[in-house]
Design a protein around this nucleic acid. Structure first.
Length: 872
RNA sequence: GGGGAAUUAGCUCAUUUGGUAGAGCGCUUCGCUGGCAGUGAAGAGGUGAACGGUUCGAUCCCGUUAUUCUCCA
């Protein structure tokens, strides 16, 4: 049974049990501050469990692409080392939201595994929660009783809170779970040692395949539990592991999905899989990681240096590192592999095919960039090793190794490998200490402490009224205190709100709420799990009152104009550049708009002009907004509205239309394009391989900029007496200026040569020393040059020159190296004494020194003293 | 979000208690060769990212900003 068939059977089975099959949510999470990636099938349904939203359908099943890089069983550094951990995996799941519970969930799980997938019953074991006194949760007798109908009692294993009690986070919904484990060892082994002994013992062939979570409690901030009003079922079954069991393999990497990738890597590297442990690990790492990277990019998450993008970059670099170090691949190889992946998985996951060019190109550029980092690091590494050997040491300094890693991104295990090849080791302990310090610093900077929600009005659903109103009468439904970095603020939820929460690239509204003359400033509005949250630094005195909510009108108006302009821009880009242009990100605030999109070359000046013209034509045309709220997603697609990759849409969406521009969008928009006033492009640049960025301004901001520019130009024009061709005049002036400067330099040099000839005549031979001491009318730079030249022309040369510039003066000393050595003179020291005569200070090297001061009258004295000192 | 680093000639990079800004490649001119490849010589090319501070003096020390790299969360 191929993996694709296994996935399809799962869908068919649960559809027959009345479930709706929904698509996978994007792997990259957009509006949940606690999560960067989807790490379980239930993520997209979180607000159903939290009660923020009510599901339309109570039974759902799907296959969810998930990404895990940390957690109790998953550390990035372990993936690939064994044969059953992954960064990205597909999670098959079925859900009940307040519908069926333990009885049906367990019965169906058993039916699917034993009758559809035909796993022998004597290879299955189940675990059930044993209860926890501290939490006051009893043993899950209910599940045990249900299991007894299907499986021998001795195969039902009690397990502790650690393995069989599931929690969403520190607080929130939680409950006991029951896990199904499969024993895929050969028959002889199974007879020798019972699988019961090996369940939950990290045996690679006695593994958990399906976890059924029964959510029945809510965990509060003080740690106590309360029953949920409705119970839910949340299950998850790893597709890769299931495929291993069903295909009779002992490793996930031996299943069809991964073998395609591994075979390709064997071809590229010339290394066979299954020959050597070390190279096998490398091949597994690469096969695993390329999936994660390609899917992330398809979901709109490009590698970058912060947040989720950084996780992707790290995974990519880990894969490249294994290829580089172990498979001896010194050129990009992952981008090619991503093409093979696209062919293999493009059928169930269309996004891979639709975006194959950009995926390949982005990966390729990232690989090149990492190779540059490696090259740079190797240079530094060489220097470090030379220094270490010079100090007669064999251990590389831990702090230095850390710097190499932290500042220059050079992987530690590569450092370690190169060190070994040079008979050196690294101080791992010191390295770890440095790494820990860095981690502590970062954590302290981002620690967030959230209090319990204080509910004022139970069961209220929040409604957004901000499309039509900028003012509204609101009540606070609940609030909580949040602390971060010694700053405390409050999060408020209203019954209805005119405040637009940050989303779709548009910034959140600001404003205030007012009761009885008391104004409470709302400094930002955000969305968390579909809940609109208003941020304020202080709570109103009477939170239970009615409030008048006022959105900051001018900020909203400017932002709105920018957002509508973004839509026009998007459409214009597709018209001028082609329909390969896809939105890759956008930022819309009251100052400007920024739009990132896929396009493979620089947008030319002509194209930019054309784009700007189209947008401005549409603004002048005064196109009325056609807003369609609560459109079914299918209907919206039929209208031809543009949806974004990696964006999760609900069942019903909002469609924004300005003439030919048609987009799914939740943002705020002008009623008529004429309200945008004016559109002006301000920048075009590259953000990543194949991704360009355009920035623009609109409305009064654009008008002000144009006015300002015109004023500047007028001013310059009048400075040049209003010439016909200002540009030519300025160019000419710049060129002349350059030429004049060159000429001045020539003159100065000539003058210097004259002075030099003069000075040469004044050199006297005293006691075998060629002495010169004079005041000159030259700048310090020229004096320096002349003295160095004279030193080259005279043997045993010793000179001091005093120069006067404006209200300052300077002294310059030079002494031939042999005199320095013979007489033990030090120009630097001498000049410090001399400089007292001119009320200044100075210093330098033994043969050359300079000083500056305020009192030019002291120059003669200083010269005299110097003569005394060196000649006598 | 927090930390570390980088920014020097067209390109790749040197330059250690702050005291004369350099190399390689590329470019220009000239020479050798019938021409090319090659090679020899000379030369041009620098507000040392921007701004401010400390200092007699800053590419170097300090601060701010910008851009880029990098690690951590």
């Amino acid at each position: 049974m191929t993996t694709h068939e296994i996935r399809q059977h799962f869908f068919d089975f649960f559809e027959s049990k009345g479930h709706k099959i929904v698509p996978s949510a994007p792997m990259v999470v957009k509006n949940d501050p606690t999560l960067m990636f989807t790490n379980a099938g239930m993520n997209q349904f979180k607000d159903y469990f939290l009660g923020n939203n009510v599901p339309k359908v109570r039974r759902i099943a799907n296959s969810q692409k998930c990404l895990r890089v940390s957690g109790k069983h998953n550390d990035l550094e372990e993936v690939g080392v064994d044969t059953y951990h992954h960064t990205m995996f597909e999670m098959l799941g079925n859900w009940s939201f307040g519908d069926y519970f333990k009885k049906d969930a367990i019965a169906w799980a058993w039916e699917l595994l034993t009758e559809v997938y035909k796993i022998p019953k004597d290879q299955l074991y189940v675990t059930v929660f044993e209860g926890d006194d501290a939490d006051g949760v009893p043993k899950d007798e209910e599940s045990i009783e249900i299991w007894k109908k299907f499986i021998a009692e001795d195969r039902i294993i009690l397990a502790s809170k650690k393995d069989n009690f599931w929690e969403m986070g520190e607080t929130g919904p939680c409950g006991p779970c029951t896990e199904i484990h499969v024993d895929i060892r050969p028959e002889a082994d199974r007879k020798a040692i019972s699988g019961i002994e090996l369940v939950n013992n990290d045996h690679p062939q006695v593994v958990e395949i399906w976890n059924n979570v029964f959510m029945q409690f809510n965990r509060k901030a003080d740690g106590s539990l309360e029953p949920l009003p409705e119970t839910h079922v949340d299950t998850g079954m790893g597709l890769e592991r299931l495929a291993m069991a069903l295909q009779g393999k002992t490793s996930n990497y031996d299943t069809d999905l991964f073998q395609t990738l591994i075979v390709e890597m064997e071809r590229v590297s010339g290394v066979k899989y299954g020959v050597k442990e070390e190279t096998d690990i490398a091949l597994r790492v690469i096969a695993d990681h390329v999936r994660t990277i390609a899917f992330s990019i398809a979901d709109g998450q490009l590698p970058s240096n912060t947040g989720a993008g950084y996780v992707i970059r790290r995974i990519l670099r880990r894969a490249v590192r294994y290829g580089y170090q172990t498979l001896n691949l010194k050129e990009p190889f992952l981008s090619g592999l991503s093409v093979v992946l696209g062919k293999e998985m493009g059928d169930p996951y269309q996004e891979l095919l639709n975006q194959k060019d950009i995926i390949e190109k982005v990966i390729y550029e990232e690989e090149l960039s990492f190779f540059r980092t490696l090259e740079h690091g190797i240079k530094r590494m060489d220097a470090l090793m030379i220094n270490t050997k010079a100090d007669n040491k064999t251990i590389l300094n831990g702090a230095a190794v850390f710097e190499l890693y932290d500042t220059f991104g050079f992987p530690v295990d590569l450092t370690s490998l190169i060190a070994r090849e040079n008979n050196l080791t690294i101080d791992e302990e010191a390295f770890e200490i440095e790494l820990d310090k860095q981690k502590t610093r970062s954590r302290a900077a981002t620690a967030v402490e959230a209090g319990d929600w204080i509910t004022l009005i139970p069961d209220a659903q929040e409604e957004f009224v901000g499309y039509d109103n900028l003012v509204a009468r609101v009540k606070i439904v609940r609030y909580r205190k949040v602390s971060q970095k010694q700053k405390t603020f409050y999060q408020l939820v209203f019954n209805q709100t005119p405040f637009y929460p940050e989303g779709g690239g548009q910034v959140g509204d600001t404003g205030f709420i007012e009761h009885n003359g008391e104004k409470t400033i709302i400094f930002d509005t955000k969305k968390e799990n579909n809940l609109i949250i208003h941020l304020t630094e202080k709570l109103p005195e009477f939170p239970g009152s009615d409030f008048d909510a006022h959105v900051n009108v001018s900020k909203r108006a400017l932002t709105t104009a920018n957002h509508s302009a973004t839509h026009l821009l998007h459409h214009a880009l597709r018209t001028v550049l082609g329909t390969h242009v896809e939105q890759k990100g956008s930022l819309v605030n009251e100052k400007n708009l920024r739009f990132d999109f896929s396009h493979f070359s620089k947008v030319t000046a002509e194209e930019l002009k054309e784009i700007e013209d189209i947008v401005n034509r549409e603004i002048k045309a005064g196109i009325a907004l056609q807003e369609h709220r609560n459109v079914a997603i299918e209907a919206a697609e039929q209208m031809g509205a543009m949806a974004l990759f990696g964006e999760k849409y609900g069942d019903s969406v909002r469609v924004i239309q300005f003439g030919p521009s048609l987009e799914l969008c939740g943002g705020t928009h002008v009623n008529n394009t004429s309200q945008i006033g004016l559109f002006k492009l301000t920048a075009e640049s590259a953000v990543a391989a194949g991704i360009r960025r355009i920035e623009a301004i609109t409305s009064t901001t654009a008008e002000n900029l144009l006015t300002e520019k015109a004023e500047k130009l007028d001013a310059i024009n009048s400075l040049f007496k209003n010439p016909k061709d200002l540009k030519a005049v300025v160019e000419d002036m710049i060129q002349k200026n350059h030429a004049y400067q060159k000429q001045i330099e020539v003159f100065q040099r000539e003058k210097g040569q004259l002075v030099k000839a003069d000075l040469k005549a004044k050199v006297e031979l005293i006691n075998g020393i060629n002495y010169l001491g004079e005041k000159v009318n030259l700048d310090a730079g020229n004096i320096k040059d002349i003295l160095h030249q004279l030193k080259g022309e005279f043997n045993n040369f010793v000179a001091v020159l005093g120069g006067i510039e404006d209200d300052k003066c300077n002294l310059t000393l030079i002494i031939s190296e042999n005199i320095v050595a013979e007489k033990g003179l030090d120009a630097g020291k001498i000049i410090r004494t001399l400089s007292t005569h001119i009320q200044g200070g100075g210093g330098g090297q033994a043969f050359f020194a300079t000083a500056g001061g305020k009192n030019a009258n002291g120059l003669d004295k200083a010269i005299a003293e110097f003569k005394e000192l060196v000649v006598s």
